[in-house]
Design a binder for these strands. Structure first.
Lengths: 234, 234
DNA sequence: TGTTTTTAGTGTAATGTTGACACAATTTAA
DNA sequence: TTAAATTGTGTCAACATTACACTAAAAACA
């Protein structure tokens, strides 16, 4: 069956931007390619969409291959389609944005793909237009973390308010007032006090919270206001 | 040259959601297909990406064909990639979101494509997954018109504050307080008083404003706060 | 044992923003 | 000239945000 005989068939790639947070810095999971083309160069994790595969399933497959995780927070970000973006063959790439709890990933799988967690500042030159994709993903993270409660996807199941604050300070690269941050966050009603305390701390132990899963779902699309001034930039 | 011999080549379509505003309702430009497949059914304007064509150029080409306009406000919205979304052949569709000044379009071109402006409420059943695309685009319009000054793209060059208010009331389907709306809008510093008055009015003539193009550019990515309560929904 | 250092947790007053509301001015048509 | 419709602006109360200071807990070390 060929209803569209004159149209071009094109390779459809999937590339994934995978963010993690180690308690101090936002990190990217990048792979040093041990296959051709561009062997030895750094790139995003990617692959091709299969003929009978849903696009979203393709993203899940590729993320699973690299991290060993199935329930990753994923959003479709943007499709990159410059005619010359892949010198090997015309390829359109659909880019996905993923946030993972960095301690959960399968380090064997990561190692076998020759992948590493790299801080944003230290990221190497990437192949093709992957640097543009990363830039776009960082923008998206800043924009969306200010409006929707996605930051939690980068933290462990149980987390403290100071941890969350460090995450936001890393995303926006600004200092935040502890007292105002805490008040604002608690007022969202998204946090449940687990009654436990953080043991890692060398000083006063902070309260461990978890997400109120119910409220998280219902309030996800409502707006919140964690916009730092640096983003309002009038 | 074939670096990726095992990967599948897939049709890449471009579909466009085109919004207009007639002073009262938000409208969609839809086409009644006079070609196969699905001849006689309603759909979005679309086409296939050419082998040597940048994706963004493809969108501009398709929008130009239908509207005769070259400088349309366009954003890439989302790529739809269910394996079975087009029963004719596996096709991935990149959807673009466009806002036009409804009086500017070329009505001859529209007529020759068998297209019509249809209010959102009255929109017919559409082919394939086009209804999902439209739903997504309406969400996007609501979300983004609250955060960035894109509403102006739907109004003539010179417009009045009451016109702008009617536009927002149409987007969000709520009544807005005239005084608060006007205060908020003027405080953005985006409007320039042209000194002219609206002649269409049968009563008191409203001041015609135009966009401050310079400030519009620099402030586009800064946030504003035209979020109706219905969207905050706590 | 108690003193120091570090980090967590909370309160408050000043300022800015938003929402609710009322009145005066302009235009056309009756 | 009066009525009807619509535009334009002012004010006050409620709410949210900012800036800032003190107390409490835990471990390290004298």
């Amino acid at each position: 069956m060929n209803n569209y005989p004159q149209a071009s068939r094109i390779l459809v790639a999937i590339d994934c931007i995978i963010f993690g947070f180690d308690g101090k810095d936002i990190k990217l999971l990048l792979i040093k390619r041990n296959f051709e083309p561009e062997k030895g160069k750094w790139s995003l994790m990617g692959g091709f969409l299969n003929a009978d595969e849903d696009l979203a399933d393709g993203a899940v497959r590729i993320l699973y291959n690299l991290t060993g995780l199935k329930n990753i927070y994923v959003e479709q970000l943007e499709t990159f389609g410059k005619a010359d973006r892949d010198p090997g063959e015309r390829t359109v790439s659909v880019v996905f944005f993923a946030l993972i709890k960095i301690d959960d990933h399968d380090s064997e799988a990561v190692k076998s793909h020759n992948a590493s967690w790299i801080t944003l500042d230290a990221r190497p030159k990437l192949i093709f237009d992957h640097e543009k994709m990363v830039t776009r993903a960082i923008e998206h993270l800043k924009y969306n973390a200010a409006l929707h409660p996605i930051g939690f996807e980068l933290l462990p199941e149980r987390f403290t308010i100071p941890q969350l604050q460090k995450l936001y300070e890393a995303i926006y690269n600004i200092p935040i007032d502890r007292r105002n941050f805490s008040r604002k966050l608690l007022s969202t009603g998204l946090l449940i006090d687990t009654g436990q305390k953080n043991n890692n701390s060398a000083t006063k132990k902070a309260t461990l919270y978890k997400l109120d899963a119910e409220r998280y779902k219902t309030k996800f699309h409502s707006f919140w206001n964690f916009m730092p001034d640096s983003m309002k930039s009038n």
